[in-house]
């Protein structure tokens, strides 16, 4: 299992885009035979909305995974963010900026905690972030039974529902965030350090990289992305939802999207472009199932199979060694 078969030096695996094209073609064929339309405007819009939410989380997840870490607390961070956003706004447009700032600050603090646990306390990333996730779950379970707060109408109108042609504003936000993440990875010192730390922490350290600082920053950025996803979901739902993150499976699906995009789970290799491809692939599968009116429970079974199968396909090619 430990034999490495490194990918060619290219930055991203284009495989995911081939898979995306094939999935869309096959999906289009099946949906058409079934008597529906896959490429109608409403379907595309809803596909892009799904992609926006998942994509924001997955871009952040890409950063920590490239650094050789992992964040499984994102689902709870998302739920918490929708609540912080909606409750601070309490339905008034005036509180929009303070609410967004507060949400991002809370998310960043959680990311900071994750980062400290992974670096300073040297807790395995999986355990550290699951532990933090459980802390948040307890808070959410004991404090909230259902939706709470009210998102500012201005935010609902803009980020939640406004679009340019068939492209929702939220998807443009995703593209902007992804572009920024791409720039950070490809052009900044922090990005290069992050890739070095994920590739081989010891070598990075000996080359003068401050590993801990780099990883903590990556965790903060990841949690900020999850916070943004929470703000977006609050603007879609119109209120805070204490279970939206876990029910949307944002933890597992974001990791799956990253792996589908060709980023190695062991760290050090991968990129944001591939992740966006992975996100679009998962969102397309979702859209196809919706068009075919597939039973929700059956959909969940298929999702589980797809995630495991996708990781298995990539693991055979890229797995150096399981992360733990």
């Amino acid at each position: 299992m430990s034999t490495a078969l490194p990918l060619p030096a290219g930055r991203t695996a284009p495989g995911v885009f081939v898979a995306l094209a094939l999935t869309l073609a096959a999906g289009w064929l099946i949906v058409t035979i079934d008597g529906g339309r896959l490429f109608s405007q409403p379907t595309i819009v809803s596909l892009l909305h799904v992609a926006a939410g998942l994509g924001l989380v997955a871009v952040g997840q890409t950063l920590v995974i490239i650094g050789g870490s992992l964040d499984l607390s994102v689902a709870y961070v998302i739920s918490l963010s929708t609540l912080v956003t909606a409750q601070t706004m309490a339905g008034s447009d005036g509180a929009l900026l303070p609410a967004v700032s507060l949400t991002l600050a809370v998310s960043a603090a959680i990311g900071f905690l994750n980062g400290l646990l992974v670096t300073k306390a040297r807790v395995n990333a999986f355990i550290a972030t699951v532990g933090v996730g459980l802390l948040l779950k307890g808070f959410l379970d004991s404090g909230y039974d259902g939706p709470a707060g009210e998102t500012a109408p201005a935010l609902v109108r803009s980020l939640g529902y406004q679009r340019v042609g068939p492209v929702p504003v939220s998807f443009l936000l995703l593209l902007a965030v992804a572009g920024a993440a791409w720039f950070v990875l490809a052009r900044t010192r922090f990005g290069h350090h992050l890739i070095a730390v994920g590739g081989d922490p010891e070598v990075a350290r000996l080359s003068g990289v401050r590993n801990d600082r780099v990883l903590v920053t990556a965790h903060v950025l990841c949690a900020l992305c999850a916070g943004l996803a929470g703000i977006y979901l609050a603007s879609r739902l119109g209120s805070g939802a204490p279970r939206v993150g876990t029910e949307g499976l944002y933890d597992l699906e974001s990791v799956a999207a990253v792996v589908l995009g060709g980023t190695a789970l062991a760290g050090g290799r991968g990129g944001v472009a591939g992740t966006i491809g992975g996100v679009l692939l998962l969102a397309s599968i979702d859209a196809i199932f919706n068009q075919l009116d597939v039973d929700a429970f059956f959909k969940q079974v298929i999702r589980g199979v797809i995630i495991v199968a996708a990781v298995a396909v990539y693991a055979r090619r890229t797995l150096r060694k399981a992360a733990f």
């Binding site: 299992m1 789970l265 298995a312 693991a315 055979r316 399981a322 733990f324």
Partner: peptide
């Protein structure tokens, strides 16, 4: 198949 156990 080499899938990390938490994902499996």
């Amino acid at each position: 198949l080499g899938v990390p156990s938490f994902i499996t």
